[in-house]
Design a protein around this nucleic acid. Structure first.
Lengths: 165, 165
DNA sequence: TATTGTTATACTCTATAACTATA
DNA sequence: TATAGTTATAGAGTATAACAATA
């Protein structure tokens, strides 16, 4: 049978499947979408986050939680505002993120000595030990990225996007 | 030199501000985060989407809506499942996306002739005209991206991430 | 007056599960 | 029994606004 792929007009460019999507998807053209960096970047970002979440599933840490703990670990005593601004997180959202990290005894909110409105953020002893493990797992995830797009391409990507960090 | 990063010590590397973040942020080190492609990709993706939304604000079209209309326009008659799979959107979510596009008379759900469970998706006449305009605005957005990271870098990026489209 | 942390609301998006009508 | 579309729910993430305590 002719395999009318559902539409009247025949789809073109039947490439050999790479297994990226389900069989048959290769026949569906992206048109203008193929020329948009944002589309590729979005799909890539989703892949990266899914791999990160999978790789750190055993320790139940998501990308945002990891970024918050890493920045606090490297800059102990920061205020919530400072962390929120540095990472581009809404300060309202950071409240809940810190609530959950504090409930797990990974982070401490200590009253600031100089400004009674603000909290100085620190990792707990447990948080420091845990973060070391998270970093090892995150490095493993990063090797997955390199394996996926190639080592040189990954480094090229980091250079191109250095201004966004 | 020892340069203890990581903890206990004062943040270093006071670079001249680029205006990327608020003044002072440059003093806050990212530590391991700087080596993670996912972090840079995420920040970049957020920037891109914000610029896209801003550039197409006059026509009230968001990135996902644009991707759906573009794929339907290039492949008229596709089923909802086919569109969802191709773009990596949950089919449950696509229902609402199409509801809003149909309410704006941009897209039509036509009962499939061969399978009474499925709908054949088409742009309306109004949708085709509108999409042409959306594409012109999206091209303008794409020039913003090129201006932001450089023309050559944007093309390099598209090559590196071609497998994710 | 402005800022820090907080609470609250709304909307987008991801991830599921379950239901219906078909196949 | 499997699939297409739909409905519903839960959680992450984004974007706001407003409030209390403090500067």
């Amino acid at each position: 049978m002719p395999r009318a792929t559902k539409s009247g007009s025949a789809p073109v460019q039947r490439r050999a499947g790479h297994g990226r999507h389900d069989a048959g998807d290769d026949a569906i053209g992206l048109d203008a979408l193929a020329g948009h960096a944002g589309y590729a970047v979005r799909r890539f970002q989703i892949w990266i986050f899914q791999d990160f979440i999978r790789t750190l599933a055993a320790v139940d840490i998501r990308p945002t939680q990891y970024s918050v703990m890493t920045v606090i670990g490297a800059n102990p005593g920061l205020s919530q505002m400072a962390v929120a601004k540095r990472l581009g997180i809404e300060r309202a959202r950071l409240v809940h993120l810190l609530d959950s990290l504090e409930a797990r005894d990974l982070v401490n909110r200590i009253p600031s000595a100089t400004d009674r409105r603000s909290h100085a953020l620190h990792l707990t002893a447990r948080g420091r030990t845990a973060l070391a493990q998270f970093k090892r797992l995150a490095a493993e995830h990063e090797r997955h990225v390199a394996a996926k797009i190639g080592k040189a391409n990954r480094e090229q990507l980091l250079r191109i996007l250095a201004d966004f960090t």
